[in-house]
Design a protein around this nucleic acid. Structure first.
Lengths: 199, 199
DNA sequence: GTCTATATTCGGATAGAC
DNA sequence: GTCTATCCGAATATAGAC
């Protein structure tokens, strides 16, 4: 990977292309987005785009997938020093609200495109989500009896938050049902902290 | 809508087209699927397809969306006469396992395509999911103190199951993490039944 | 209802000049 | 690195014969 330096305050063209492609793929889907359209929005020609991504559209997809997968874990900021299970979960839930529509759009897109990705591309997400789960489990660990239970609780919390986001933000259920993320978490978290390992 | 009768055991061609389109849209996405390909699989020409759907591909999408939205609620079969909150949830969870990859694939596809649908098309799903939530809430209602709490619990249960399905089946986390739907529910349900309205 | 044939537009991709 | 010009295949859609 070549150094992606900035020249005089503007990000270089290659990065701009990736950025633009990410937006368009997320909004329209991979196949529905044409190289032509990306080039237009970037402000260059298709030929220029093929200079940066020799293998064409597919290489661009690759780059988009590899890019900005990192800060998924930033969701946990500040949760490390929570003093109770309840506080830890609340802290994570707060961060979830900040994820915002931008990242959610990309998530939604990948969800739809996932089964068509190659094994290597899939592995990227598996790794990223496992890391995410692992960090949540670590944050919860001090307040439960076993690693095993921390892991389960982390999956449940992850899945519930994920499901809420998709139902209410992605499928726009918020337009027809009154249940804010805050209310959701206010109801869920007390339930999740109510018990230790299997009764 | 004209009568979709069968002629001598075979479903009529219009229905066959919808069925085929549903499969292809789910697998490849709307834009990635060509009218040509649908016609080939159906075993007719594009022209024949345009006879059945005068407004072309978009009309086909419409038909696919309107079709088979019903039996979402069949998930609740047998849960009506549960004798405890725990039993009711378990019963619903069991049915979820039966939904199978076919419906899940369509769900996944719609999730990705949703934000590009028209308001009328979106309304179809809002209605369907609200009905789903409402039925779950009704099943849970006898075992909790208020309609309000039944509603919240139903959303949580819905979102958690939804999130599990997408994470483990759709994003194929089952390949890299050991957490079966059974284990998930075995852990979640006891937590959800542990308390009544806000403490 | 279904076909053949065709119009037309748009897609990804490349060659070669600058 | 970026452009102009171009190739070619595939897409949606329609006309008109049977």
């Amino acid at each position: 990977m070549p150094d992606s330096h900035r020249d005089s305050g503007r990000i270089n063209r290659r990065d701009l292309i990736i950025e633009t492609a990410t937006r368009l793929f997320s909004e329209q889907g991979y196949t529905a987005t044409s190289v032509r359209q990306i080039a237009e929005l970037v402000g260059c020609t298709e030929a220029a785009l093929y200079y940066h991504f020799k293998d064409g559209k597919r290489a661009l997809l690759q780059a988009v997938l590899e890019c900005e997968m990192p800060k998924l874990t930033s969701i946990i900021n500040g949760s490390e020093n929570a003093t109770s299970l309840q506080a830890a979960m609340k802290s994570i839930a707060m961060q979830m609200d900040v994820v915002g529509p931008e990242r959610m759009a990309k998530m939604r897109w990948i969800l739809g495109e996932f089964h068509r990705l190659s094994d290597e591309e899939k592995a990227l997400f598996h790794e990223s989500h496992l890391r995410m789960h692992h960090i949540i489990a670590q944050v919860l660990r001090p307040f439960v009896d076993s690693d095993e239970y921390a892991s389960r609780l982390a999956w449940i919390f992850f899945a519930a938050g994920f499901g809420y986001g998709l139902l209410f933000w992605n499928l726009e259920m918020q337009d027809v049902a009154n249940f804010s993320l805050h209310e959701f978490m206010e109801t869920l978290i007390p339930l999740l902290v109510s018990r230790q390992p299997t009764p």
